[in-house]
Simulated scan of single mutants.
Amino acid sequence: MSVIDLGEYGADFTANPYPYYAKLRAQGPVHEVLTPDGMPAWLVVGYEEARAALADQRLSKSFSAFGMPLPEEEIVGPNLLIVDPPDHTRLRKLVAGEFTGRRVEALRPRVQQLTDELLDAMEPDGRADLVDSFAFPLPITVICELLGVPAADRDSFRAWSNELVTPTGAMTDREAVEGFGGYLDALIEDKRAAGPADDLLSALIATRAEDGDRLSLPELRALAYLLLIAGHETTVNLISNTVRALLTHPEQLAALRADPGLLDGAIEEGLRYDGPVENATLRFAPEALTLGGTEIPAGAIVLIGLAAGAHDPGRFPEPDRFDIRRDPRGHLAFGHGIHFCLGAPLARLEGKTAIRTLLERFPRLELDPEADPLEWLPGMLIRGTRRLPVVW
């Protein structure tokens, strides 16, 4: 089997990778590739193979355990996405108690208030970049308030986060991680000194398991780092990608406007059809193993295609058709297995609130016909566009 250089597909692959994944899938569910930035990896493009790989504990998330620590672990510390059991089990147990349905449900009025305020500010102009004016500020405000991060610091977070997830070249990865890490050290120290408070970071500082176990400073710093990035970057693109899908499928938009009861289906189909995470974060094969009938050599990096799996016709008939009445259960947008996204309930709450209210407030919402072509986010992690110009 020859190595497939995804970089040869150019900008068209970034804008619409699904036809390329379909061609690969027709040849088999797993392929040796070079990513557009030149990284060698084994890419999983079949649904069943992706689901199995996400739950396969032979694949490691801990590169440091094999002498290859990722920059964020070296500088910030071990977070849930880059550790394996038993460390992952311990960290998730300590954290999961703070991600209860009760805490998420308690955020509903505030999410609605923020949504209304953002749309109030947008409405008089008649046009906006939906990403900058709405899809970004809503989740970043929610996650910062949830963690107890001062409002004045959010522009810094956006700059650091952009460089790490969808690079602009304004700074290096290391500079972004170091900026994040230094800031979080100071914030945690301030919260320790201030004592108990009604925010998630303060609760995590105070949390203690029955056996007395608690999070160390590097663990707290790494967890806050993960929550701040994952807690807004994915939701930004959940909102904007789903709105873009609705606006480019007017019959589906009309159906949703006619029957708001279809909103849950619209959100789940948005997650399946063009979800915010194209490929899961990196996994590593410590030993040779077989995935989807393909031999993966020891030491290989494995990319699991969440977007590719979501367009596998063996699991979702007519997968390239956006259909808010579809039963999309089983999509992999939030992962699967022990690394299933802790923040999925909050992302769904924000997505539903944002899109329902946006469509209610702006009955004539459409893509801006005078706008420049959309600019797609680089890389194979986050799926979305830098801007989404709309008018109403």
Rank of each mutant, 00 (worst) to 15 (best):
3 V>I: 10
363 P>G: 00
232 H>I: 08
374 L>I: 07
264 D>C: 13
1 M>P: 14
89 T>G: 06
69 P>F: 04
381 L>Y: 15
15 A>M: 09
141 T>C: 03
156 S>C: 09
93 K>N: 10
217 L>H: 11
284 F>S: 13
181 G>L: 07
136 F>D: 09
291 L>N: 09
309 G>T: 02
114 L>K: 01
7 G>E: 04
162 N>S: 10
327 D>L: 02
270 G>A: 01
384 G>S: 15
339 H>L: 07
339 H>P: 05
28 G>H: 09
210 E>W: 03
374 L>P: 03
51 R>H: 01
40 P>T: 02
7 G>S: 02
177 V>R: 12
323 D>T: 12
51 R>Q: 07
293 G>T: 03
1 M>H: 14
65 A>K: 11
2 S>R: 13
178 E>W: 02
291 L>P: 07
102 R>D: 10
361 R>W: 10
366 E>H: 13
271 L>E: 10
62 S>Y: 04
50 A>V: 09
58 R>L: 01
168 T>C: 06
47 Y>C: 01
329 R>Q: 10
78 P>M: 10
131 V>M: 09
84 D>M: 06
298 A>G: 11
289 L>E: 06
363 P>H: 02
310 A>P: 02
47 Y>Q: 03
225 Y>W: 08
340 F>N: 14
299 G>P: 13
42 W>A: 09
355 I>Q: 07
158 R>N: 05
282 L>T: 12
167 P>Q: 04
335 G>H: 01
319 P>L: 02
216 S>F: 01
371 A>Q: 06
73 E>C: 06
31 H>C: 08
173 D>C: 12
137 P>R: 08
249 H>T: 15
16 N>Y: 09
108 R>P: 03
92 R>S: 06
196 P>R: 10
317 P>E: 06
136 F>S: 14
104 V>P: 04
185 D>R: 05
218 P>H: 02
10 G>T: 04
290 T>E: 15
199 D>S: 00
271 L>W: 00
35 T>D: 10
261 G>T: 14
169 G>P: 15
290 T>M: 12
259 D>S: 12
248 T>F: 00
102 R>T: 12
285 A>C: 06
364 R>K: 13
30 V>M: 09
228 L>S: 05
191 K>V: 00
59 L>A: 05
182 G>V: 04
48 E>S: 12
338 I>M: 14
46 G>T: 07
168 T>Q: 12
32 E>F: 15
183 Y>C: 00
336 H>A: 14
4 I>R: 10
191 K>Q: 00
342 L>K: 15
359 L>P: 12
334 F>T: 07
278 E>V: 14
175 E>N: 03
101 G>Q: 07
35 T>K: 09
6 L>I: 02
106 A>K: 04
131 V>S: 03
317 P>D: 07
388 L>I: 13
